[in-house]
Design a protein around this nucleic acid. Structure first.
Length: 855
RNA sequence: GGGCGCAUAGCUCAGUCGGCUAGAGCGCUGCCUUCACACGGCAGAGGUCACAGGUUCGAGUCCUGUUGCGCCCACCA
């Protein structure tokens, strides 16, 4: 092939040109005809399609891409699909705010509905629309977002096979999600239960343990006296939630607490309401907290739930799904006084109710002293704005080891079958599994999501039978129980006594995204693909979602395929702003990725990303991008220079000692880069390649320049130089290709057939064979001497082109022997008249510059 | 309370099996308008490797402890 080297190579425009070529030529297409051992499959994280991509995405997706490109070059058929997470609450919220609408399932479908031209600013002015209209808006908006994301990912240079895409609400996904759930149900791994669970009153849905976070909130200890039923004084408890007094079912102290031992199993009466409650003993009560005795309410926190369950206490729940106290006075209030007291805060949320309750306690004299203000951590849904309440509802769960030591151990063992990058991230996983305190709550009381594919029989009174749900045929999936009818029933029987009712809930987003390996690999739909790709090779993801995405995927694969979902898990770090704070929208320190890519170029941004070691938090640093840009330009220019010297004659091989020396150095580099990539350490591979490359440019290219210019076609020394340059350049381009796909592909196209990204990864043994008797020491010694000559010129403040009168090189015999093999190259590069060699213990180079020409 | 990570030049970070006279890049200073590259090149200055012990012929590296920063988990009347 003829070499076509541009006059003035530049980075500008490379992205557009190569994005089109790669697409047209199917460069990154998964062929799907190779056995599992020759496939490398990646469980790409589906980005949340609502909102926008940020620098963190560029960072971590680039890491994965470097691995994908490396695997492709070592000969793997790389399966690199892309998913879009358009499921769940973030999408609902975005659609609500974008269009100014809310979903109201009671509103009928309007086929002609169009969203308001100007969305309302305030929530209460939003237009209420039907569930179906709402879902249509969700699909429309996410499809738009996904196109924008794809463009950006292509620009970054992700070598994704864009013919393999999935969404987490697509029809196929719904089918897979429902089928997997029904299998869990059939095997007894999924169950429903009416139980107290954490409840977000804003979103009006149950939430799972994995979605909680603590936030510091102001509160106050209120000391409240409970008169003893025997009339012998009162027991004082301390609480931050006095408004829950009406829900009090018992008091509790530690069994060893001498202050209260005599009172166990006696009773007290709640102040204000006069409800008789027992005093119980339980090990979870802490003698050093407050007065050492607590009131148990149904339900103030998760400890209440534990006490309630383990002490077998009654339920006296008053807070509804909207977070407000029920309007009707509870049945257990027996006196008019109690009911009148209750009426004063009925219908209020907990904050308002607390104020009233404190007044009531003051009026009755039950409040001891003044409330003591504190701040303490309170559980929130991670997306929520109000503290979680605990509400008793029927929910679906999948077993996850939270209530079974055997399952917990099995899941820890699964984690040990996975190689973690970095290794210490395994602890996060094990920590989480071992700390679980309940099964995984998968049902959500939301609209846009995968419906729970079940119906329930209604008895003659219209009460549903939750213990024996009606299950759809596998062939009918996906179904929506709100519009589909269970086998053997017809629509007229919906919600009629003796008929059926559809489960109203949808699955939690993790219940579906825990299936991404099954989804991407064509589980139960494409046996051939599945056999070639599953279990997958790599799950890349952020370490913040180990407890959710990683863990839940492990659970599903454990049950469904009796194997871990992947062989490797690579956890990426955070992007910190230059002040070492995590970048986030709320802090206003977010940078728009598209601007970055356009300003610095994709290779430069990738260079920055690839310098972030696996799992390590990395500072956002445009300085690194500038260095990356400089490197990419250097690759273009150095390649142009090397190639412009022209191809070596047919059959020429590296024969000169200096040339063979550089090949040995490259062979060592290939060994190191290969080892690094095999260990998922793209950062080390880049660093070492870059280091050698700059030395290659500064020293080897300078040393070999004059010789390589040789005009005589039979000049063996020139032929050796050109043959070496070609081999070295080809090696370096391939080593850089996973990190800098654009610049390397551009240079490759000047003189090679095909894509560098389909070229074989360089082999150290081939380089060593070409180097024959080569010795690294030759280049090292020559570079040392050249450096000393440059230093002398720099000190003398003369041009590097200045002639040198005389050079004496002193050093050990081995050093001189090595350097002398490149004598002519040193003489040419340094513009010397000649070199005198003297043996000595230490290396020293004496340089006498020529007198400057009289000017 | 349990677990994990980090601490090396002004800044961002390498330093793999203990051999180091501790490196790179940025920044800073000086020089070179060199025919691949001024979106460049060459060179220079800059360090008590957080602290205290220990192991060793030898410790930035291994062990013990301390301090500081960060993260995960648990608790949270």
């Amino acid at each position: 092939m003829t070499w076509t080297v541009p006059e003035k190579p530049a980075l500008e425009g490379l992205e557009q040109r190569w994005i089109e070529r790669w697409e047209a030529e199917g460069t990154y297409r998964f062929s799907g005809d190779r056995p599992r051992a020759e496939v490398y499959s990646i469980d790409t994280p589906p980005p949340t399609a609502s909102g926008s991509l940020h620098v963190g995405h560029i960072f971590s997706y680039t890491h994965t891409d470097t691995i994908a490109r490396y695997q492709r070059m070592i000969g793997k058929d790389v399966f690199y699909p892309m998913g879009w997470d358009d499921n769940g609450l973030p999408t609902e919220r975005r659609v609500e705010n974008y269009y100014g609408v809310t979903c109201d399932p009671t509103v009928p479908y309007d086929p002609a509905f169009t969203p308001p031209a100007e969305p309302a600013k305030k929530r209460q002015d939003f237009v209420a629309i039907s569930r179906r209209n709402f879902i249509e808006l969700c699909h429309g908006l996410t499809a738009e977002d996904e196109r924008v994301f794809e463009q950006l990912f292509r620009l970054v240079g992700l070598s994704v096979d864009w013919t393999h895409q999935y969404t987490t609400v697509g029809e196929r996904t719904q089918r897979v999600s429902q089928r997997a759930f029904l299998r869990n149900l059939a095997r007894g791994e999924a169950y429903s239960q009416e139980a107290p669970s954490l409840w977000d009153t804003t979103f009006q849905t149950a939430v799972a343990q994995a979605e909680l976070e603590d936030r510091e909130r102001p509160a106050a200890y209120h000391d409240i006296a409970f008169p003893r039923s025997d009339g012998e004084g009162a027991v004082v408890i301390s609480t931050t939630r006095p408004e829950l007094l009406v829900s009090c079912v018992a008091l509790v102290a530690h069994p060893d607490d001498e202050r209260y031992q005599a009172l166990f199993d006696t009773t007290v009466r709640t102040p204000v309401f006069g409800v008789e409650v027992p005093i119980k003993a339980h090990g979870l009560a802490q003698p050093d907290k407050g007065t050492g005795i607590a009131m148990i309410c149904t339900f103030g926190d998760t400890t209440d739930v534990t006490w309630w369950r383990e002490l077998d206490l009654p339920t006296r729940a008053v807070i509804g799904k909207d977070g407000r106290f029920a309007f009707e006075p509870p049945a257990w209030l027996e006196t008019d006084t109690a009911r009148e007291a209750y009426a004063r805060f009925a219908g209020k949320a907990s904050g308002g109710a607390q104020q009233v309750m404190v007044e009531l306690l003051r009026e009755t004299g039950a409040l001891q002293g003044e409330p003591e203000k504190i701040t303490h951590p309170v559980k929130f849904y991670e997306r929520g704005e109000k503290p979680l309440e605990i509400v008793t509802t029927r929910q679906w769960y999948i077993r996850n080891g939270g209530r079974s030591a055997a399952l917990r151990d099995a899941l820890v063992a699964r984690g040990q079958e996975v190689v973690w990058h970095p290794e210490y991230m395994r602890h996060r996983y094990e920590n989480w599994v071992e700390g679980l305190n309940g099964d995984w709550l998968i049902s959500r009381q939301r609209f846009f999501g995968v419906p729970v594919p079940l119906w329930y029989r209604l008895d003659e009174n219209g009460v549903p039978d939750h213990d024996d749900p009606l299950v759809p045929d596998d062939a009918s999936l996906p179904i929506d129980p709100q519009s589909h009818v269970p086998p053997g029933y017809d629509e007229a029987q919906r919600d009629q006594p003796g008929g059926f009712t559809g489960d109203p809930d949808v699955f939690d987003t993790w219940a579906t995204s825990s299936l991404t390996p099954l989804l991407a690999c064509g589980w139960e739909e494409d046996e051939d693909l599945f056999a070639r790709t599953y279990p997958m090779d790599l799950r890349p993801q952020g370490h913040d979602i180990i407890r959710t995405w990683l863990f839940s995927t492990m659970v599903r694969s454990h049950f469904e395929t009796d194997s871990p979902p992947w062989r490797n898990a690579a956890l990426s770090g955070w992007i910190l702003d230059p002040d070492r704070k995590k970048m986030s929208k709320s802090k206003g320190n977010v940078v728009v990725p598209l601007d970055l890519l356009q300003q610095h170029g994709s290779d430069a941004v990738r260079y920055w990303a690839a310098n972030g070691r696996p799992g390590t938090d990395t500072a956002f640093d445009t300085g690194q991008m500038k260095i990356g840009r400089r490197l990419a330009i250097k690759i273009l220019n150095a390649s142009r220079f090397a190639l412009n010297l022209g191809p070596a004659p047919e059959g020429a091989t590296p024969a000169e000692a200096l040339d063979r020396s550089v090949l040995v150095a490259l062979a060592d580099l290939v060994d190191e880069a290969t080892r690094a990539f095999d260990g998922y350490d793209y950062a080390r591979a880049l660093q070492r390649t870059e280091e050698l490359f700059w030395g290659f440019c500064d020293d080897y290219l300078e040393l070999v320049k004059t010789r390589a210019y040789g005009e005589d076609p039979d000049d063996a020394a020139a032929a050796s130089a050109r043959a070496t340059l070609a081999l070295a350049l080809s090696t370096l381009l391939r080593l850089f290709a996973p990190i800098l796909p654009y610049a390397t592909e551009e240079v490759w196209s000047w003189w090679q057939e095909g894509s560098v990204h389909r070229a074989p990864w360089p082999r150290a043994d081939e380089l060593r064979a070409a180097a024959e008797t080569g010795d690294r020491a030759v280049l090292d010694a020559a570079a040392t001497i050249l450096g000393e000559i440059r230093k002398a010129k720099s000190d003398a403040k003369v041009s590097m082109r200045a002639d040198v009168e005389a050079v004496v090189v002193r050093g050990p015999a081995a050093f001189i022997a090595a350097a002398a093999q490149a004598e002519q190259d040193i003489v040419d590069a340094g513009r010397l008249r000649g070199i005198a060699w003297e043996e000595a213990d230490e290396v020293a180079v004496e340089v006498r510059l020529a007198d400057p020409p009289a000017s």
